[in-house]
Amino acid sequence: MYRKIMVPVDLGHVERLGKALKTAADLARHYDVPLIYVGVGAATPGSLAHNPQEFERKMNAFADEQSKTYDIAQATSIACISHDPSVDLDATLLKAVEDTGADLVVMASHVPGLAEHLFASNAGYVAMHAKASVFVVR
């Protein structure tokens, strides 16, 4: 039914994404499709990583760890670099949906720290604008 599942993650708040991550893993196993974790960061040094390459390594490590924890056959990751993540997060995620060719997005309704902006809810935005199906985990 699905070919590829994309899961946006905020490495700074992984502990609060548990339900979404488990849901995504269950679906990936059920349909036996690859899972792709997407993180968004800036090119400037931040609290998660000092540079894009370190961010990429951390995303890869995260995907490996998820694949072991939930016994997922194919788990990969992408580290997207945004010029202005406070603003461009939604647009970057939408582009990632297209670039990865995912046809299902599983995301937490509120990714804390990133979504607490003026016009909040990233999941709402992605659900409204993405062509893929979006599973918002509350």
Partner: peptide, 12 residues
């Protein structure tokens, strides 16, 4: 503190 991803209301 050098973070470029601080919440939007701060720059406002």
């Amino acid at each position: 503190g050098g973070k470029v991803d601080a919440p939007l209301p701060q720059r406002v």
